[in-house]
């Protein structure tokens, strides 16, 4: 009974999350701080934005775009939703300035758009399964961002040859992180 639910969550967590399926780990890290605490808040806001945006994108796609066959308007409409999301989140998160100050996540909420696009290209069968997949993707964003921030902080102080310092060493470490995620995915499969 609960197996499809768990499977949907794990699919979002390991297989569909854009950090692994699209290799966006280095891109996600570009907006994140090296400070673990700040990276956690950034990741939390990112996860929340992805969840909210993903739900709205799903509704837009299946309630408006698909029935009216307006696929050509989908991308502009998805991007038009972004300023609205930012405005709503800024108002909603006013009592939590540590979260609000990170808006938008990376550039124009890039990770949220990536998650929504991946979800719409691999749609789960029902709304409930979609919500669980999205929850998995959001959890994966938070976890990978905290991991990546830790990794970057360690690499900044590591002893490397000058040309390897910064992004090159981080990209090599991200590659290993990607392989680790693949290993977990194979275990689940």
């Amino acid at each position: 009974m609960t197996a499809p639910l768990a499977l949907s969550f794990l699919t979002g967590l390991l297989a569909l999350n854009p950090w692994i399926s699209l290799g966006l780990i280095p891109t996600a890290a570009q907006g994140a701080s090296l400070n673990h605490r700040q990276a956690f808040y950034y990741g939390l806001l990112g996860a929340f934005t992805m969840l909210l945006y993903g739900l709205l994108a799903w509704l837009l796609h299946f309630q408006i775009i698909a029935p009216l066959r307006m696929a050509v308007f989908e991308l502009p409409l998805l991007l038009l939703m972004m300023p609205g999301i930012n405005w709503a989140l800024a108002r909603l998160l006013k009592p939590w300035p540590r979260l609000e100050q990170n808006l938008p996540v990376f550039h124009l909420n890039f990770p949220a758009l990536a998650a929504a696009l991946v979800l719409l290209h691999n749609p789960p069968a029902t709304f409930g399964l979609m919500a669980l997949t999205l929850l998995g993707m959001s959890a994966s964003f938070l976890a990978s961002l905290v991991l990546v921030s830790h990794l970057r902080a360690r690499l900044e102080t590591g002893l490397f040859h000058k040309p390897l310092k910064g992004w090159p060493s981080f990209l090599l470490a991200s590659g290993i992180l990607w392989i680790a995620f693949q290993g977990l995915l194979m275990l689940v499969r």
């Binding site: 290799g23 040309p163 090159p168 060493s169 990209l171 590659g175």
Partner: peptide
Amino acid sequence: LFGGILLTGILLTIFN
């Protein structure tokens, strides 16, 4: 994708 990540890292090293 590991190939993409690795080769981008190598290219950045060469550029540096």
